[in-house]
Measured scan of single mutants.
Amino acid sequence: MSRESDVEAQQSHGSSACSQPHGSVTQSQGSSSQSQGISSSSTSTMPNSSQSSHSSSGTLSSLETVSTQELYSIPEDQEPEDQEPEEPTPAPWARLWALQDGFANLECVNDNYWFGRDKSCEYCFDEPLLKRTDKYRTYSKKHFRIFREVGPKNSYIAYIEDHSGNGTFVNTELVGKGKRRPLNNNSEIALSLSRNKVFVFFDLTVDDQSVYPKALRDEYIMSKTLGSGACGEVKLAFERKTCKKVAIKIISKRKFAIGSAREADPALNVETEIEILKKLNHPCIIKIKNFFDAEDYYIVLELMEGGELFDKVVGNKRLKEATCKLYFYQMLLAVQYLHENGIIHRDLKPENVLLSSQEEDCLIKITDFGHSKILGETSLMRTLCGTPTYLAPEVLVSVGTAGYNRAVDCWSLGVILFICLSGYPPFSEHRTQVSLKDQITSGKYNFIPEVWAEVSEKALDLVKKLLVVDPKARFTTEEALRHPWLQDEDMKRKFQDLLSEENESTALPQVL
């Protein structure tokens, strides 16, 4: 008996699950189920560990084997000379395990699969056993689809999209007709009724959600790893209520002995410091949205989908001078704002400069500016000194954290500008005749005249004003913003236009 009217009423009120309206889709043409990776026989039982391990490696599972009696060998002398080797079968990115008779397991190899009674669906509900069930008529011709799209860092995100009359449910929550939600590992998919569980979705590319604290899981769906560094790992996640993407940084307390840091400095109150950081608001710094204190720290951040500045300059790639100017102007505005709010970044580098898009002209935002507030000064500097390429001379020669101030950030900005303009770092371990530390503390950077011949004198002058060993003589952010190279009204107008595109209400910060 159909429950279409009941569920449609529920759909009209929406769902609290991570779902959002989605535009129309072009329906895929039908194809045989076997060619799409559906096993030839149905099963109602969950797999054992041996079955799972075989399939996850990209080899055929026991459900897909063919009797050897149906095959015969071709003698080598009868092999056609022009026969080309077969292409290897792509490894599946996800697996659906059937929970009921009449449904088959599915190895997801393609990027898009339609499910329903219509014969054009890649996964067609046409098993005779299924057709005899009382629920068969409640399934729509095109009930739902599972697909994946390219996300940040060229990774993939799996989604389920509801197109049914009676509802598609993920972990008992209604997706909603015309809406989608991301699928995470071990999600249970039910059709027409929330208790009519048909599939379990296994994402073969992500970790299980159960490793994360419950308070975090209640608000966010964790997904793929976006990156990792000395101070922690960053994962893509989704807000459950809105389906908006965020980035979540995970900082290990054990790695940084944060408990010991608190004992050594009783004034170090991470929760208080995070609340201060959350109040920071500038178009060129990453917004801190939320914070969870569990076995590790979880910092929920605004997501930038254009990648890191590092990706644009790695491998001796240089940027156009006009692009360097647009990016560097924004970096200076961001660091100036942090300094005005009493925050020294201490870890400025291309990896911590994020881009809003893949376009050459785009907004940038500074991230990882609050680590000293979370990890403690000593722990952070011990970590950073392991990779000193961007560290100021006074940091390398000081004991502990004494003896330096916000000028350290201006040195790091000078190193970043040098790399963007030239395509190579000013200080490098590859210069074996002088140690990296000695290069930095003496201010002897690697200047290649033929490379810098293409760079304007004004740009080079600003680099020199920032890479000054004496912090008292080094340019401040205010002085850098007043430098002739940055007195470019076309560049500032472009920045204002980019801000307006992102948010019509965002105004250009005042600069002296």
Rank of each mutant, 00 (worst) to 15 (best):
I157E: 01
E70K: 07
V25S: 10
S210T: 04
L216C: 05
K253E: 03
S52V: 06
K245C: 05
D111Q: 04
Y123W: 06
S57G: 13
V234Y: 00
A267G: 06
T59M: 05
G30W: 13
S57V: 09
S15G: 10
S40P: 08
E173T: 02
L96E: 01
D77Y: 11
S40W: 12
D265V: 02
N185T: 07
S24E: 11
E81Q: 15
Q27A: 05
G259D: 08
L216I: 15
F144R: 00
S41H: 10
P75C: 13
T43F: 05
N105G: 11
S140K: 02
S40C: 11
F147T: 14
P88W: 14
P182F: 10
V246P: 01
Y220H: 01
R117D: 01
S67T: 04
R3P: 11
K214L: 06
S120N: 08
E79N: 08
D82P: 05
Q100Y: 15
A267T: 14
V175C: 11
E127Y: 10
E263R: 06
Q10W: 14
K214G: 05
G176A: 09
V25P: 11
S55A: 06
E219T: 04
S24C: 09
N48E: 12
H163Q: 12
I258R: 06
S187G: 13
E263T: 14
F256D: 15
D118T: 11
L129P: 06
F199G: 01
S164K: 15
E107M: 15
P128G: 09
V7P: 11
R180V: 03
R217A: 00
S187D: 03
I251E: 05
Q27D: 05
S228K: 14
N48H: 10
S194M: 01
R181C: 04
N184M: 06
E239R: 06
T45R: 10
N185W: 12
V7I: 14
L174A: 12
S53W: 02
P182Q: 03
L226P: 00
W97S: 08
D218T: 08
Y72K: 11
Q69L: 05
S155T: 06
S120V: 09
G167T: 04
N171S: 13
E263Y: 09
S164E: 00
A237R: 00
K214V: 02
I258G: 10
Q29E: 08
E79P: 11
F125M: 13
G232I: 00
L204W: 00
A190F: 00
T65K: 02
D101P: 09
D207N: 10
K177R: 12
H22K: 10
D126V: 09
S40L: 06
Y156W: 12
L183G: 02
S42P: 09
V234T: 07
G167W: 02
I74V: 07
K135F: 13
Q20C: 02
Y212W: 14
S31N: 08
K244L: 14
E8V: 09
K253A: 04
R148W: 15
A247S: 03
R262N: 00
G37V: 14
F125T: 00
S16L: 10
Y72D: 14
A247R: 00
G102F: 15
K245D: 06
Y113V: 11
H13M: 08
E239V: 08
Q83S: 04
L71T: 15
G176W: 03
N48L: 09
Y123F: 14
P128Q: 07
K119G: 08
S12I: 07
Q78F: 13
V109W: 11
S192V: 07
V175M: 13
A94P: 04
N184T: 06
P182T: 05
R145I: 06
H163V: 06
G151D: 08
E161L: 14
C231K: 03
K235W: 15
L183F: 07
T168Q: 02
S40A: 10
Y113D: 01
T138G: 05
T65P: 04
K197N: 02
V234Q: 00
V175Y: 00
V150E: 15
D82K: 03
Q11E: 12
V7K: 08
V211Q: 14
N269R: 14
E64I: 04
T242I: 05
T272E: 06
E122P: 05
I258T: 04
T43L: 11
K235F: 12
L216F: 15
R148S: 11
I248F: 11
V246N: 07
A98R: 11
K141P: 02
N186E: 03
Q83A: 07
V270E: 13
Y159Q: 03
I251G: 15
P80C: 06
A98M: 12
S52L: 06
E70Q: 04
I160V: 05
Q20I: 04
F201M: 15
W114C: 14
D265E: 06
G30S: 06
L129S: 09
S40V: 08
F144I: 00
T43E: 07
M222Y: 13
K153C: 00
T65D: 14
R181K: 04
L99C: 15
N166A: 07
G14A: 15
K135L: 15
K245N: 13
G178S: 15
Y159A: 00
R254L: 01
D265T: 00
D111S: 11
L268F: 09
A98F: 03
A91P: 11
S223E: 13
S31D: 09
S55F: 08
Q78K: 11
I157K: 01
C243N: 01
E86H: 05
P213V: 13
G116A: 02
L174H: 08
A190N: 15
K142V: 08
E173R: 03
D208P: 12
E87R: 05
T68R: 03
E4F: 06
E149F: 02
Y136D: 11
H22R: 09
S155G: 11
L106M: 10
G176V: 08
P21G: 13
S42I: 05
S53Y: 06
A264V: 04
S155C: 11
F238H: 15
K235H: 07
D111N: 10
T172V: 13
I221W: 07
V175A: 02
R181H: 10
K255T: 05
N196H: 03
V109H: 11
K255Y: 01
N112A: 09
E188Y: 15
K142S: 11
A9T: 07
V175E: 00
R95P: 03
S2T: 07
I38Y: 08
F169Y: 05
T68A: 01
D6V: 07
G116H: 01
G102H: 14
S228V: 04
A237P: 03
N48D: 13
M46V: 03
P182Y: 15
N166S: 02
Q20G: 08
E76Q: 15
A264K: 13
I248N: 01
G30V: 07
L216E: 03
R254E: 01
K153I: 14
R145S: 12
Q10R: 12
G165Y: 11
S228C: 05
F199K: 03
S12Y: 12
K249D: 05
P75K: 03
D162S: 14
S73P: 14
N184L: 13
R148F: 01
A261L: 06
P182A: 07
Q51V: 08
A237N: 00
S260P: 09
D101R: 15
N184H: 14
E127W: 11
F144H: 05
P213T: 04
H22T: 08
K245V: 10
I157S: 02
A261M: 00
T43P: 03
K119Y: 13
F125P: 01
L193M: 02
Q100W: 15
K244F: 06
F147Y: 02
E76F: 14
T138D: 03
F199D: 00
C121K: 01
F144S: 02
P88N: 04
S39K: 06
D207W: 00
T45Q: 10
V234E: 04
G116Q: 01
N184G: 06
K179R: 01
G229Q: 03
A94V: 01
T133V: 08
F256K: 00
T138E: 02
V150Y: 05
P47Y: 11
E127K: 12
E84W: 07
S12T: 10
S210K: 01
P85N: 13
G178I: 15
D118M: 04
R3C: 13
P80E: 09
C121D: 02
S19Q: 15
M222G: 12
E87V: 06
K235S: 10
K179G: 00
K253F: 02
N269G: 10
E149K: 10
I248L: 15
P213C: 01
S57T: 11
R217M: 13
G151S: 09
D111C: 14
F115Y: 02
A17L: 05
E122T: 08
L216P: 00
F169Q: 01
G167C: 00
A237V: 15
I74W: 06
D101Q: 11
C231F: 12
P213W: 06
A190D: 11
M46I: 05
K253G: 07
